[in-house]
Every structure is written in C-alpha cells, then in structure tokens.
Design a protein around this nucleic acid. Structure first.
Lengths: 238, 238
DNA sequence: AGCGCACTACGTACGCTGTACGTAACTAGG
DNA sequence: CCTAGTTACGTACAGCGTACGTAGTGCGCT
C-alpha cells in the first residue's frame, strides 16, 4: 500500500526490519554490496534500480521495500565503502596517523572510482562515516587544540584527499563505456592544452608548464599537499 | 549526416562555425547561458537536452549540432560561470588576493549551487578556467616559490573552497523539487545525528558536539580553513 | 485458535531521458 | 551554377525512476 512519504527521511533511521510479515530476503548490506559491485565493474551510470534488482535476483519494485529513493541507494553505497576504512590503534603521532587515514581514503577512492562523484551530493552521516570521524578524533587526541579545530582539520584533510583523487580519477571514469581509451582521451586533451598555451594568452601558465620536465608524480604531489595542510595545524611549527 | 565521432574530442577545440551551410542560430555562449538559467531556476536535474532546446526555441536534435554529447553541455556550463570571476589587478599581497579569489569562487558556487556537483566530473581546461588559472598565477607573482608549488597551492585553495561550499549547499540542492523544506530536512537529519551520538558509540564526537554552543558560523569556519592553507605556503611563517 | 494488518513481492504503466538516424532546406567554395 | 558540407528537426528506441495495484505471508492481538 503506502505511497512514498511526504516527509524527509534518513534511511539510517529506518529499522532494517519490523517483525510483521514475511522475512526480508536481503539486508541493506546485501543491496549496498550489489550496487557497489555494479558500479565497480560497469561504472556509476550502470547502477540503476533495475540492474541492482537483477543482480540481487529480485523484481525491480521489490527494491523499493528497502530503499525508498535511488538517492538512498547512493547513501548505502557510500556507507558500504566507508566500512573499508581500517580503524587502527592511534600511535600517539597524530600527523602520521592522519596521513595514514588520508592514504587509505585515497586507496578506497582508487578502488571505487565513483566515490568522489557521489560524495559531493550526499549528506554524509552514515554509520561508517561516523565511525571514521570518531576514529580520526581518536588519532587527534594528542593534538592540543579545541575540538572544533580538530573537526575542521578532519574536514580539510578529507576535502584535499577528495579533490586531488577526484582529479586523478576523472578521466578513467569518463572514458569508461567510451569507444576510446584513457590514453587517447588524455592525449587529445593535452594536445588542446598545449595549443592554447602556445597562443601566448597564458604566459605564466606557459612558464609553469615549461618548468616541469617529465611526467608529474601524482602521488608525490598528493603527499606534499597533505603535509602542507598538516603543517598548518601543527602547533610545533608556529 | 555524420554519426557521432568514434574518437575523443575536446569541445573547445571545435571551431564554433565552419563557413559552409546556413548560419548557426546560436553561439556556444547562448546555449551555455540557457542551460545555466535552467539549472539555477529548476536545479541540475532539469537540465535536459529537450529542456535546453525549448529554452532556446529550437528542436531538441538541433542542439546536437552545437554540443556533441550532454557531457559537453556540462563543460559549457562550468566555463560559463567561470566567466563570472573578476580578473582584478594583483595588489602585491598574494594572501589577500588569493583570499579574494577564493571568496569569489565561493560566491559563484552559492549563486550556482549545481557547480560543485559538476566539478568532480569535468576535466576543467575550458577557456575561462585557464583564464582564472593564469590570474591566480599573476596574484602569486610576489610569492617566491617554484611555479609547481604555486599551481599546487591554487589546486589546494580551489579544493578547499569546493569541499566546504559543497557541504553548505548539499541540502539546498537535494531539497529542491522535494515536497519538504530545507529546514525540515535539516531538522530530521540533525535529530538522527543526535540520536546516534546519544548512544554513546561516538564519545569524542559527542564531546565535540557538546563543546559547540549555538549555531556554527559557516562563513567563519570557511575563512579559518582558508587562512590555514595559506599559512602552510607562507614563507614568512616558517 | 484464528482474525486482521503490516509487511514483502512484483507486474504494469507513465512520463521522462539521451541520442541514432533520416530527410529537407540552405549557402559558401569550386 | 552546382554540389558538398552544414543546419534544422521529426521520429523512434532503449532505458530510466517510480506510482500504483494486487497477491501472498506470517506476527501480534483478541
């Protein structure tokens, strides 16, 4: 019966099952896993209600018993990969710990290249997100600043990781399901960039491109940016 | 005739018009402006080829003469709002200038709330993006570090602006076209968050939430984060 | 014990999407 | 002037999210 609710709803506040009626055939985790599997293998645009239902082996509309709107499926997916974060024992060195957390986030995003695109549209207080936030706060215990500053630091680190990794990944995700390769796409884009810089309209940009010799080490760039951010919050450096 | 190309293509490398045949009825700017108007007024999901074509007063398929794929329309939109960046004369104070640039980016995103969501999927070497990049490099002229470090600083600032502003905006964009208000959605989410924190599963998170009294000043948080990032690149502070 | 209700399951249908393809009109270059 | 390359756009198709209705299931209450 029902009809969808006319009131906002957080999927995590919904109980997973309610007792009356037939036992649900799937858990939320099952559904999230299926969606993640599809997104990993065929790209985010392949994640449709029909496709996920087929992967689970049930009718399309049955999915709506578990997930009121597609957006909630996305939230499930984000939470699902959040579980991949290792909650380790803080070492007492908050910089090293946060660096480790950041590298792990980056690794997760590399494994699941659709994550950055979903992150900018999702609210982000899923269970695993909260768990990770709590873990970061534990890592920052030795840092002697107000709690508010700590959460700001965490947000900043996550932001940097997301932006940098999203850029690395963008081409991969875009060329998926295109009839040409990532290398071809990159070559065409670089050729265009070169032609623009060559017009002389962007002298400083041109100089910057001339300066760099050889390919960029994305990993090194990423780590440098992160170190800078941590520097900015390190009392011992001020 | 045609049939779409089986080779990657940068829309900016396409000439706007080619000489033979009837004069194109629209410029790329016209199309971008129409799409931006729709996205601003009705949200990003209302930007469809049909809708944009209607806004321009032409048939749906005519649009494909100008924009080979919808993704390219997105690229046009990003470039279009990039034109809103004021290219001012650098003052000689790189920190102040970059702060101004960042505030402007934030303002643009607030005017066009769909920008952050598009940014994580778009490559980003459009004419106006290049123009802005060049402008930032001009602002950083007084800063005595290698050009590579400067571009890293710019990337970091843009990343921070995007992440922070995206979070502020997420709810607004989500509740558009929903039968409930932004305040209602926020209330429901906050209630859920409170209930989770109250379980005691996240003690440090709970403490952080207790510490803050009164509503958060998002603008102040944003500015603080930015200052930290600039600190991290300021030679006078190391 | 058994009734009723809350729940699961899912087929059908609607309005929307991106876009492939074919045809007609137009105009600059040879 | 002719023709080749372009613009314009109607039609069509596969796929999307999801509203709605119906059938079946089993817990909780009387």
């Amino acid at each position: 019966m029902a009809g969808r609710a006319a009131v906002p709803e957080v999927i995590w506040a919904r109980p997973e099952r309610t007792g009356r009626g037939p036992k649900p055939a799937f858990t939320r985790a099952d559904i999230a896993a299926a969606a993640v599997r599809i997104a990993d293998a065929e790209g985010l645009e392949a994640v449709s209600m029909r496709h996920v239902a087929a992967e689970l082996g049930c009718g399309t509309m049955s999915l709506y018993n578990y997930v009121p709107r597609k957006e909630d499926l996305y939230e499930l997916m984000i939470d699902s990969v959040g579980a991949e974060h290792e909650i380790f024992e803080p070492t007492g060195d908050w910089r090293a710990d946060m660096l480790r957390n950041a590298e792990e986030t980056r690794a997760i995003m590399r494994r699941h290249t659709w994550v950055p695109r979903l992150m900018s549209g999702v609210y982000g207080f899923s269970p695993n997100t909260l768990r990770y936030l709590e873990h970061c706060l534990a890592c920052l215990e030795p840092l002697d600043v107000p709690a508010g500053t700590k959460t700001e630091l965490i947000a900043l680190v996550n932001g940097v990781v997301t932006t940098y990794t999203a850029n690395d990944i963008a081409t991969v995700e875009r060329t998926r399901s295109m009839p040409w390769s990532e290398e071809e796409e990159n070559a065409v884009r670089m050729a265009y960039l070169g032609s623009q810089v060559a017009t002389g309209a962007y002298p400083r940009l041109a100089a910057a491109f001339m300066e760099q010799s050889g390919p960029v080490d994305l990993e090194a760039v990423f780590r440098r940016a992160l170190e800078r951010v941590l520097d900015a919050y390190d009392p011992e450096l001020r």
